[in-house]
Each structure stands twice: as structure tokens, then as C-alpha cells.
Design a protein around this nucleic acid. Structure first.
Lengths: 135, 135
DNA sequence: TAAATTTGTAACATATTTTATTACAGTATG
DNA sequence: CATACTGTAATAAAATATGTTACAAATTTA
């Protein structure tokens, strides 16, 4: 999962923030996202690895937020979902004997790195709580 | 082609800028990118549609820049390659009966739209000439 | 303690998107 | 007229993303 990872993760977290008292089941969350529960559990596994949520197995089990939503920024979520802003690279290694081919990827990386800084600055200013309170 | 479109297009344009006197063949360009020549011709077709390059068929034919590299911005290239900055959406339509599901995509779009503005502003300040002169 | 429910995870299947290849008609050059 | 290009369609292959099934392990509650 790459393309929907950030969107799915933020959807999960928004739901958890809206229902702070319960352990929510992956089945229920999956119903809101309209996604297979196994995929929800996979994203939750990622969130757990970053100690953003905790979950409980067994009957009446599920997942809930383990951090303060006001202190979790979209930038952190962005980074947890392994996303990087950019406009892509050509798939194959360019020709190293061509002065352009030899250096293009480095120059693209520099360009994208600047983009990331701008986007990160934007996302750092938005907390999960901010995002969730829009709903 | 999506992921490499911007990178490939800017690679093509940089080459054309470096060799302003010739009509470059798609075969030659493909050799620098290490890409199939047919795919190069497809990207060139897109550039032609935007009147950024012109090309000549037949023997000794090829493609060359049709605009002033100092006046072509990376933002224009970005837009020509149909790219939009964002962090993706879940593939399926979320549940419209859930207050979160119902509105998540709109909120994500708002967020991404802000990103686009920032990135566009950055790219608008860089011309093809600027980019090419780094090499 | 047994039944029910839920997570965690692996293995596999399907769908979608990207990239590559083949083929060939049309066009200009020398 | 032979050669070397573009333009484009059709198809194939590869890569990536998403979906499904299955089941062990954990926990609750009756």
C-alpha cells in the first residue's frame, strides 16, 4: 500500500479521535473507509509500531489513540506513512555517460527536497485535533 | 505513464536545451534516459500539443525546443505532465453514512490544494534555463 | 471453562497502473 | 529509391496496490 496510506491512516486516526472512549474494531473502521479490515489492521500495525495507538485483542477488543491529538501533527503522520513529496523519477537508471543523464536524479532530488521542506512546514502546523475538529 | 512523467519530460527538455541547434532523435534521447523511444515520442507528443517543442519527421528529423528556455517555468512543465501534489486518497468511496467518511475526501482535497499552491509557487520561480544550467 | 469476538499475520489472488515491445504507415533527406 | 526518422496503435510484460481467505492467539463474558 502506497497511494492510499496517508489517507487511510488519517481516516483511522480521525475516527479514533472522535470516539476516544472505546476500543474500535477494525471491522467498524473498515466500514467507514470502505476497505478490507485486514488492510486496516495493517495500517494499525504501523501506528502501533510508532506508539500512536494501542490495541487490545480478544472480544470487545480494538484500537484506541495512545497520544494527545493536539500534539500529533500531520507531519508525523506523513512521515509514518513513508510518503515523500516529489514528482517522481524515471524508472531506469539514466545513462551515466551523458552529462544530463548522469546528474538528473541528483538535481531532481534537490528540487524535491525543497518541496518536502515546504510541505513539511505546512503539515507541522496542523494537529490531528485540528484536522478532526473540521468534521 | 504517471510516476515518471515529470522527470522524463524535464530530462527531454534539458537535453533539447543543451543541444539547441539540432533536431534530436527520440532514439538518442531515449539513450540518455534509458527508456524506450516510443515512450519518449509520447512525451514529446504532449510537449508538442503544448507548443513547447517542434519536431520534424523523416530522415535527420527529430525534435527541438520551440520556446525560450528562460521563459518556460517548471510550474508549466508540472502542469503539462498532469501532476498534482498530494498524499493520495483511499481507493474506495468512503461510507457516506459516517460523518468522517462523508467528508474526509473534501478535507483531504483542501489540504492538498494548499500543498499545491506552495509547490507551484516554488516551481514558478525556476525556469528550464535555470534548471538546465545546473548541469 | 466454553462460546464468542477480535487482533495479528501469512499466504495467496485479483486488479490496476506503468513501462516495454512490436509493427508499420507516413514523411523527409540525400 | 534507400535510408532514417516520426506518429501511433495494439499488445505484452512487469510492477504495484488492493482484496480475500484462513487460522492461531488473545480476551471477555456468560
Amino acid at each position: 500500500m502506497i497511494s492510499g496510506k496517508f489517507a487511510i491512516t488519517i481516516h483511522i486516526l480521525t475516527l479514533l479521535h472522535k470516539f476516544p472512549n472505546d476500543y474500535m474494531s477494525s471491522e467498524y473502521i473498515a466500514g467507514s473507509i470502505n476497505l478490507n479490515p485486514v488492510l486496516v489492521r495493517k495500517e494499525i500495525a504501523n501506528l502501533k509500531a510508532h506508539h500512536i495507538v494501542e490495541s487490545k485483542e480478544g472480544k470487545n477488543g480494538g484500537t484506541k489513540l495512545a497520544v494527545n491529538a493536539a500534539e500529533l501533527t500531520l507531519k508525523q503522520i506523513f512521515e509514518m506513512t513513508f510518503e515523500t513529496i516529489g514528482l517522481g523519477f524515471a524508472k531506469n537508471q539514466p545513462n551515466p555517460d551523458c552529462p544530463v543523464g548522469k546528474n538528473i536524479n541528483q538535481h531532481l532530488e534537490n528540487l524535491y527536497s525543497e518541496m518536502n521542506q515546504k510541505v513539511s512546514a505546512q503539515l507541522e502546523g496542523i494537529s490531528l485535533e485540528d484536522f478532526s475538529n473540521q468534521f
